[in-house]
Computed example of a mutant assay.
Amino acid sequence: MQITLRAIWAFISRPVVATVLHGAAIWIWHVPALFEAALQQGFLHYAQHASLLGTGLLFWWVLLPRPGREHACGNAVMHLFFTSLHTGLLGVLLVVSPKLWYPANAVGSDLWGLSPLEDQQLAGLIMWIPAGLIYGGAALLSVAFWIQTSSRRHQAPRSCASSNPHRFTSVFTGRCCQASFFSQLRYGLGNDGGSFMARCMSPLACSRRRT
């Protein structure tokens, strides 16, 4: 049972799957017949909100940048861009449609001084522009996180040498070693050179030699 649940979670937590599930929930529940049925039947109403909330949480949990998932930032930007496109398209359809999609949902629009069609157009506009800005902002956040973590990885090896010309990074351990390199060239490696190499291969940082 545990293995089955882990396999299911591993599958649905893939960025592609999470994006498709979230997009499918949005479009399916905006089909007029299903939307109207959800307004009339309590079970469908709860199912509608549960599926939209569940797939939305899954979508953002999978795609938002966090430590340990730097390599997935590029894919996250692509999925966020795709989601902004299809949700924006749905919003545009609601804005430009001359027909009221959800007549049963038009109750109360007059409280805001709007006709039912204007209320639908306003909802589509909100889905199109403000929601699109949220997806775009999340994509920019992912790009910034990606660039920041990448620059840190590239600067780490150089920071050792930039602080001191006699410091260098061991190719074996990736750690900073500090030694009198010119004295090694002056006297030759010999026996002392062997201990010098051993220190650089050690997980401990090399101490500075005095010549």
Rank of each mutant, 00 (worst) to 15 (best):
P98L: 03
W112L: 15
T87E: 00
A37S: 08
N191C: 02
G132D: 05
H30M: 14
V77P: 01
H154A: 14
R208V: 08
V96D: 03
H166M: 14
M127K: 03
W9K: 03
W112F: 15
P65T: 04
R152H: 11
P157M: 11
A123I: 15
V107Y: 07
P67A: 09
L114F: 15
R14E: 11
F196P: 08
P130V: 02
E118D: 15
I28Y: 12
G124Q: 09
G42E: 15
W29K: 05
P103I: 00
V171K: 13
R199W: 01
M78T: 09
P103L: 05
F59S: 06
A18L: 07
I126V: 10
A123F: 14
L80N: 06
R153N: 05
I126W: 01
M1Y: 10
G56C: 02
H49C: 10
C177R: 02
S51F: 07
L189F: 00
H45T: 05
G108Q: 05
V62P: 04
P165Y: 08
T87F: 00
V77T: 02
A131Q: 09
A138F: 08
M1F: 04
E70P: 01
G124A: 15
V17W: 00
C200A: 13
V17F: 02
S150V: 12
I8W: 07
P67E: 09
G190H: 13
R209F: 01
Q48P: 01
L114V: 07
G190R: 12
L34N: 01
S97Q: 12
A76V: 00
L90M: 15
L204E: 08
T149E: 07
F181L: 13
L114G: 03
L117I: 14
T87V: 12
